[in-house]
């Protein structure tokens, strides 16, 4: 049956190539969407773990006052984590972030950097209230919080997921129809051969299997080529993305993700190719007596 399926592919190479190319394009777009969606999720998770509010403290603040403020915040029940960052720690963070730029490190000492409290809330909705509380404190100089960044990214990802789901569904439909049409054309072209097979006692599955295997081969080939293309694109764009997403630990991309992407695209190819060709055999082999 594999031999027959391979013969069917070889004997109409242009139809086979057209089917594989269309499916490869669809799977490539799906693959890129998967990469973007997973990357976006990772960025969002990273940002969510970052302190959401930073309260810079005044110069003359005493440790007891800081402890008092920490306790006060913790008793509200809205706080996930509070961490005190001393002037020395702030200097170390500054040095780490600018280690590649010696000019920015010159003349900077712990004295000019303020101590701060880094606060994470259990619920993002509580951030404005917490910020308001902190601003009212006499030992707090300034309050910044990144509610907007997180919520904007979250909204973007939600939109991307919806648009992606629609696009993926649409592309899968195109792929299934492509396989259905190509295999259907081949079945029509082999009408006489199929009739002969039926007359010598072949059952429908004996006739059907080579066509289904052919569709599955299209799907698997498209899945592999699209994975290879998206992986090469990811490798090619890594230097740019590393610079663009500085500080976010997204690269190098985990090999488990690359393997999962390959498995996902192959599985998608298997299902789409199998389903398209099965539908074609159902539709076009009806007339076989």
């Amino acid at each position: 049956m594999f031999k027959t399926a391979w013969q069917y592919i070889k004997r109409s190479p242009y139809q086979s190539a057209a089917a594989i190319l269309i499916m490869t394009l669809a799977f490539f777009i799906i693959g890129v969407f998967m990469v973007v969606a997973v990357g976006g999720e990772t960025i969002l998770r990273f940002l969510e773990t970052r302190p959401q509010i930073t309260a810079f403290l005044k110069e003359e603040v005493k440790p007891q006052q800081v402890e008092l403020l920490k306790s006060k915040l913790e008793t509200t029940g809205k706080i996930l984590k509070v961490r005190f960052v001393s002037k020395e720690e702030a200097l170390n963070i500054y040095k780490e972030e600018n280690k590649n730029n010696p000019l920015l490190l010159e003349m900077v000492t712990a004295k000019i950097l303020p101590a701060s409290l880094e606060v994470s809330a259990i619920n993002l909705a509580a951030l404005p209230e917490i910020a308001k509380t902190l601003k009212a404190e006499p030992i707090v100089e300034e309050v910044i919080f990144q509610e907007d960044v997180v919520s904007v990214l979250s909204n973007w990802l939600q939109t991307l997921r919806l648009a992606g789901a629609f696009l993926v569904g649409f592309l899968i439909l195109i792929s299934v129809l492509t396989v259905l049409i190509v295999i259907g054309m081949k079945i029509s072209a082999k009408k006489e051969e199929i009739e002969i097979l039926a007359l010598v006692g072949a059952n429908k599955w004996y006739i059907r299997w080579p066509f289904i295997i052919e569709g599955v081969i299209y799907g698997l080939a498209s899945g592999f080529i699209s994975w290879l293309s998206s992986y090469l694109l990811l490798l090619y764009s890594t230097p740019f993305l590393v610079a663009f997403l500085a500080g976010i630990p997204l690269f190098p991309v985990a090999w488990q993700f690359i393997i999962s992407l390959l498995a996902g695209l192959l599985l998608l190819g298997l299902l789409v190719g199998g389903m398209g060709s099965f539908m074609a055999t159902k539709r076009f082999l009806k007339a076989v007596k």
Partner: peptide, 15 residues
């Protein structure tokens, strides 16, 4: 059909 052999005038061989 498997119990019956058929010889056709137009042979009906797979080309």
């Amino acid at each position: 059909r498997r119990r019956i052999g058929v010889v056709f005038q137009d042979f009906k061989l797979l080309t």
